[in-house]
Amino acid sequence: MAVLVYIESENNNFKKSSYEALSYGKALAEMMKKSLCGIVFNCSDFESLKAFGVDKILNIDNNELKDFSSKKYASAISEVIKSESINVVVLSSSPDSKFLGAHLSGMTESSFVSNVVELPDTIDPFVVKRTCFTNKAFSTTELISDLKILSIESNCFGLVEKLSDPKIENFEIKVISSNQKIKSIEKENGSVNIADAEIVVSGGRGLKGPENWGMIEKLADALGAATACSKPVSDMGWRPHSEHVGQTGKPVSSNLYIAIGISGAIQHIAGISSSKVKVVINNDPDAPFFKAADYGIIGDAFEIVPALTEKLEAR
């Protein structure tokens, strides 16, 4: 009986979102008086995982699992669930984890809830809080299958360090076959990803045109932040779709969200409301965003943004 965390990695480096999933998993395991088990694929250096209280790490070393495959990974994890008598699986909310979570839940006929924001209220019955209505509300949800799968909203729990000395085991599986194959991967170079970002700098139609994004990128660089935009900005092709945030775009649950030249329409606010601290820069004092923000500057973005960047760089 144990709690299992899927630990995502890329080239033997673990994702930060997985450290948060482990932190959550550890607290949950303690609540349930169970041990914490982690599953990794094709990794060799487990040192950094020791900080997050994991009791056992199962490594699946298999060339056929070099590339992420939702089906193959979910099938491998379902074998671990059986052999380790897992009760709860904890996932981050990265694109791969959510992709895999729903697939795994289908394969194992179990209940899955996503966008979880807190530890369960109670374990028996198993009741957790999650966001719904694109962050306009929370739901307290009861899960009733034996196996439960949770994916936690990023930055909802934070990193909680707890030293441990995990047992490391190789876990052998027979990889299922699939005719679904990756042909190629195109990476955008160097940018911080919105989903993983602690700080997001976002621009709206108030910036007038794509040629003005240089100052947004500079501010983002100064803060180590990801860049994002409002829907019309991506609709007009000023910025890629992957940067569109809001109800119909990506949700953002960063620690800091800086909105520049964005009016604050309800569909935009819905997508970013689970971000902890919001700063708005807008020259219209009546822009609705001021009602949703923690800090605001009324003024011209073309003056404020470069000045702010300069001050941050000088720190």
Binding site: K136, A137, S139, E142, L143, A292, I297, D300
Partner: peptide, 27 residues
């Protein structure tokens, strides 16, 4: 396999703190 027992809305935000454009150090 899952039931929504209860809903609630986020707490109402406290008033925004305004910072003057020439006081960026304060921000």
């Amino acid at each position: 396999k899952a039931y929504d027992l209860k809903f609630n809305k986020p707490e109402v935000k406290s008033e925004v703190k305004l910072i003057k454009p020439n006081e960026l150090d304060k921000l």
